[in-house]
Amino acid sequence: MTTKASILGYGKTDITNFVIMMVIAFAFVPMVVQTDYWYSSILIPWLCLSLAAIGQQIVMGFAGQLALGAAGFMAAGAFACFNFILRVPDIPFFVALILSGLVAAAFGVLFGLPSLRVRGIYLMVATLASQFFIVWMIDKFGWFKNYDTSGIITAQDIVIFGKPFTSPLEMYLVIVVVVTVLTILAINMARGSTGRNWMAVRDMDIAAESMGISLLRTKLQAFAISAFYCGVAGALFAFTYLKSLEPVAFDIKLSFKILFMVILGGLGTINGAFIGAAFILLFPVLLNSVGNNVFHGAIDATIISSIEQVVFGVLIIVFMIYEPLGMARLWDNIKRRSRKAN
């Protein structure tokens, strides 16, 4: 081992990578990407969904609890944020964001309780309850929607220190800040004792318990933190991408999508969440443009979306058979091989 220049235990390569990422995110992208389409249709939803995927990753990839209700927690976060901004005068946006994450976390603890008794598909069914219950609750009680009858509520503008952030580029920057902070936090948690406890519980909960890890604490903590991430992601998703709040946007399909991001991206890795989110988001875009440009719209849009479903399904099966650790592992393998070649 050479002498390491390290900050908080991070090595030189980690820091270099981080600096490069930051330069790309804050300088390169805003300079190069000029079209609003890229921000509002690709980058913004990608970052929001990546954040939700990190949430799913924490509970499923790190703590090994098969949960399927990420969209429900996103809905909780989105509507909490809407209500905080609506009802608390002059609340700073970031405070509202954190509070809405905490609201989602409370739901996470509540619906994470069954995880103390059951696992596998049993737990999946229990978490499905959260998905259906939260969306129903928001839909049925007018207070959450401020008694709006149209069903679709326009999200308020994001205002930080009196300055409105409304253009796609400005919103993108807000999201990048949030995502950066939360990603670093997630990486730290995953590397530290919290993450090790999660992984111990994932790999064998009985052994973990006998080593003195409290299952109650560890599992509920994973559910709470996971729901917090999903809640923040949901709030950002509603305020910057959808620009409206409707419970239907957070249906079970979105939960499945986030589950797929994590499975395809690679269970138990943070970068897997980003890779998976990019793939699930970009693949349909690619398929549509192939349909439009190569076949000139000769293929029906519904057929294209069906093909997309088939491809996702096939990929999941193929990855389960050949590379259960997903695309993140493939990426690592490519890196390792190129390093060897050098």
Partner: peptide, 23 residues
Amino acid sequence: QSEDTLLMATIGLGFVLEGLAQA
């Protein structure tokens, strides 16, 4: 393979069947 792996694979299978049927 573990039960969880098989479960995820059948989720994939479900998507394949839904997509094929609609296509």
